[in-house]
Amino acid sequence: MALKYGLILFSTPLLLAADAPALPDWLSGCWEARSDDRWTEECWMSPRGGIMLGASRSGVGDTADQWEAMQIHVETDAGAGNAQPLPSGHRRAG
């Protein structure tokens, strides 16, 4: 079964410390999960400018059947963060 915890973990708003908002820099980098012919790849850029950007794709064999663009950013006024997945070509809402 493909690794899907990233979507679950980052589909909900993140609450960060009000006095020192921080992005999850431990998430930076790339990894791959495989199960038989099914695969998932995910990469995250290092935090910069108050935002992290990520992308993933999943598929079977040589065919990608899902992709996702993600962002995690800090709203410095509120001291809170937000993570927004953008799965398989859907446009971000307002």
Rank of each mutant, 00 (worst) to 15 (best):
90 H>S: 10
55 A>F: 12
23 L>A: 01
63 T>S: 10
47 P>F: 03
70 M>Y: 05
19 D>K: 13
53 L>D: 03
79 G>E: 08
69 A>H: 11
50 G>Q: 06
5 Y>S: 15
56 S>V: 01
74 V>N: 04
39 W>M: 04
49 G>C: 03
84 Q>M: 08
23 L>C: 02
21 P>I: 08
92 R>T: 06
72 I>E: 01
64 A>V: 15
18 A>H: 05
55 A>Q: 11
15 L>K: 15
33 A>S: 15
42 E>D: 06
16 L>R: 06
56 S>F: 01
5 Y>K: 07
64 A>F: 02
77 D>W: 09
8 I>A: 13
73 H>T: 10
82 N>E: 14
37 D>G: 02
36 D>S: 09
29 G>A: 06
37 D>W: 04
42 E>W: 04
15 L>Y: 13
67 W>T: 07
76 T>M: 06
78 A>D: 06
7 L>G: 08
89 G>D: 05
9 L>Y: 14
77 D>V: 14
78 A>M: 11
41 E>G: 11
4 K>D: 12
27 L>Y: 02
45 M>A: 15
26 W>N: 12
4 K>E: 12
60 V>E: 14
65 D>P: 02
45 M>V: 13
62 D>L: 08
17 A>R: 10
52 M>E: 00
41 E>F: 12
44 W>Q: 06
20 A>I: 03
80 A>I: 13
43 C>F: 08
73 H>K: 04
28 S>R: 11
14 L>Q: 11
8 I>T: 10
17 A>W: 07
71 Q>S: 13
73 H>M: 07
38 R>Y: 11
77 D>C: 06
19 D>N: 14
40 T>S: 13
62 D>P: 12
55 A>W: 09
91 R>Q: 03
13 P>G: 02
12 T>V: 11
58 S>L: 00
33 A>F: 05
15 L>S: 08
61 G>W: 07
60 V>P: 00
71 Q>P: 01
69 A>D: 08
5 Y>R: 13
17 A>L: 14
59 G>E: 01
42 E>Y: 04
46 S>T: 14
59 G>Q: 01
90 H>P: 00
39 W>D: 02
64 A>G: 08
79 G>A: 11
30 C>M: 05
35 S>I: 06
59 G>M: 00
47 P>C: 06
17 A>C: 10
89 G>V: 03
73 H>E: 09
84 Q>V: 14
76 T>E: 10
52 M>K: 00
22 A>M: 09
61 G>N: 07
88 S>L: 05
25 D>M: 01
93 A>C: 05
35 S>Y: 09
4 K>H: 04
82 N>V: 15
3 L>F: 05
65 D>M: 04
19 D>W: 09
72 I>T: 01
70 M>G: 00
35 S>L: 08
20 A>T: 12
33 A>N: 13
80 A>Y: 08
2 A>Q: 07
54 G>I: 07
74 V>Q: 03
20 A>Q: 12
61 G>I: 04
26 W>P: 00
91 R>V: 12
61 G>H: 10
54 G>S: 04
52 M>S: 01
67 W>P: 00
60 V>F: 12
92 R>F: 04
8 I>S: 15
44 W>P: 02
30 C>S: 15
25 D>P: 01
